Computed example of a mutant assay.
Amino acid sequence: MPHEVRGVVARSKGAEVSMETIVVPDPGPGEALVDVQSCGVCHTDLHYREGGINDEFPFLLGHEAAGVVEAVGEGVTDVAPGDFVILNWRAVCGQCRACLRGRPWYCFATHNAAQKMTLTDGTELSPALGIGAFADKTLVHAGQCTKVNPAASPAAAGLLGCGVMAGLGAAINTGAVTRGDSVAVIGCGGVGDAAIAGARLAGAAKIIAVDLDDRKLEWARGFGATDTVNSRETDPVAAIRELTGGNGADVVVEAIGRPETYEQAFYARDLAGTVVLVGVPTPDMKIELPLLEVFGRGGALKSSWYGDCLPSRDFPMLVDLYLQGRLDLDGFVSETIGLDDVEEAFGKMRRGEVLRSVVNL
């Protein structure tokens, strides 16, 4: 029978979120019901609330989550009740042209639950990124559940579900950072700091953090930055070049998503270097670069979708590194809060006071 639970809903563009009673169906074929334990407050949730993703209100917010599978529907074999899982928003189909070519991290037909969660009056909810985890329970496609070691803290592990995986993957998967590389990261919020942590895991020799905020630069050092540049005070392109022997960095990760910072990333890389865009731009943004410079500098200009991750491969590995003490996921958790505190957490995020507020349920 359906479950009535608490959930955080954005009813209209720009309106403060509200706590509502959510009706969650029992899982159907290919679906899983998850008892949510923790969920990070991500910028994407704020984008949904502001109408920056689409206008399919009302939204059930929250997507960066970990929890325990409570029940599964017909045909589900990869997870079972009692499994500790991280939720992901790219459950690969296995059948599209990307999957069939052995590139499932690019899957073009990812799965979500077929059934809808609703308000008590029957209004259908749009779950953020197909997850909707600012709720005591949520319904997802079983492929959105990735089983990991239950020894991990739910508050830390859940962050792999979005922002931390996006940043780590931008460095390791998309940027292919390797031993001895020089890396620059522009924008040191949660995603940027995760890229720094990923570069350190990969063995980068020099990791340059760039931001306007000295507090964020100090956080970046904690995740592995060897050098910091306050771009409010110093030209970041000149500073990155100076710190890399005049050459520029082998890999530059742009974790903001703005034309001006992307241009900085383009000019701050070495010849044949790589630029990785993981910051999310708005639809109106445009960039103009001299085509001769694009040709003459060689290398690669890449976009990173979800850190080009494959959850079934990457989440268990990264949780193991966390449990070994080699990846400080706890360092991304600035505070733990309740469901009632999500709106306040959005304000702290906007003011740059936290890397991540995490809702514990």
Score class of each variant (00 low, 15 high):
residue 15 A to Q: 15
residue 15 A to C: 04
residue 20 E to S: 00
residue 20 E to R: 02
residue 21 T to N: 11
residue 23 V to E: 08
residue 23 V to P: 00
residue 24 V to I: 07
residue 31 E to P: 04
residue 34 V to H: 01
residue 35 D to W: 01
residue 36 V to M: 11
residue 45 D to L: 01
residue 46 L to E: 09
residue 50 E to Q: 15
residue 51 G to M: 09
residue 56 E to C: 12
residue 59 F to Y: 15
residue 62 G to W: 00
residue 62 G to N: 06
residue 63 H to R: 07
residue 70 E to V: 01
residue 76 V to K: 10
residue 77 T to E: 15
residue 80 A to S: 09
residue 82 G to A: 05
residue 83 D to P: 01
residue 84 F to N: 01
residue 97 R to F: 11
residue 98 A to R: 05
residue 99 C to Q: 05
residue 101 R to M: 11
residue 104 P to Y: 00
residue 116 K to R: 15
residue 118 T to Y: 12
residue 126 S to Y: 10
residue 132 G to C: 14
residue 137 K to E: 08
residue 138 T to P: 04
residue 138 T to E: 07
residue 141 H to I: 01
residue 142 A to F: 09
residue 143 G to L: 08
residue 146 T to V: 15
residue 148 V to T: 01
residue 155 A to H: 00
residue 156 A to F: 00
residue 158 G to C: 01
residue 169 G to R: 00
residue 173 N to L: 08
residue 178 T to P: 03
residue 178 T to C: 06
residue 179 R to V: 12
residue 186 I to G: 08
residue 187 G to I: 03
residue 188 C to Q: 14
residue 191 V to E: 08
residue 193 D to Q: 13
residue 194 A to K: 02
residue 195 A to E: 02
residue 200 R to V: 03
residue 202 A to L: 05
residue 204 A to G: 05
residue 204 A to F: 06
residue 205 A to N: 13
residue 205 A to W: 06
residue 205 A to G: 15
residue 206 K to W: 03
residue 216 K to T: 06
residue 220 A to W: 13
residue 223 F to G: 04
residue 225 A to N: 11
residue 226 T to Q: 09
residue 230 N to A: 06
residue 234 T to W: 02
residue 237 V to T: 14
residue 238 A to T: 09
residue 240 I to P: 14
residue 243 L to R: 14
residue 247 N to A: 14
residue 247 N to C: 12
residue 247 N to E: 15
residue 248 G to S: 03
residue 248 G to T: 03
residue 249 A to H: 15
residue 251 V to T: 09
residue 253 V to A: 07
residue 253 V to S: 06
residue 254 E to T: 04
residue 256 I to S: 06
residue 257 G to R: 11
residue 260 E to F: 06
residue 261 T to A: 09
residue 262 Y to C: 06
residue 263 E to C: 06
residue 269 R to W: 03
residue 269 R to K: 13
residue 270 D to L: 05
residue 278 V to S: 00
residue 288 E to Y: 03
residue 289 L to M: 13
residue 291 L to H: 07
residue 291 L to C: 10
residue 291 L to V: 15
residue 297 R to Y: 07
residue 299 G to T: 10
residue 300 A to T: 10
residue 304 S to Q: 01
residue 305 W to F: 08
residue 307 G to N: 02
residue 311 P to A: 01
residue 315 F to W: 07
residue 319 V to M: 06
residue 331 G to D: 10
residue 334 S to P: 08
residue 338 G to K: 13
residue 338 G to R: 14
residue 341 D to H: 12
residue 341 D to I: 05
residue 342 V to L: 12
residue 342 V to K: 09
residue 347 G to S: 09
residue 351 R to P: 00
residue 351 R to A: 15
residue 356 R to S: 02
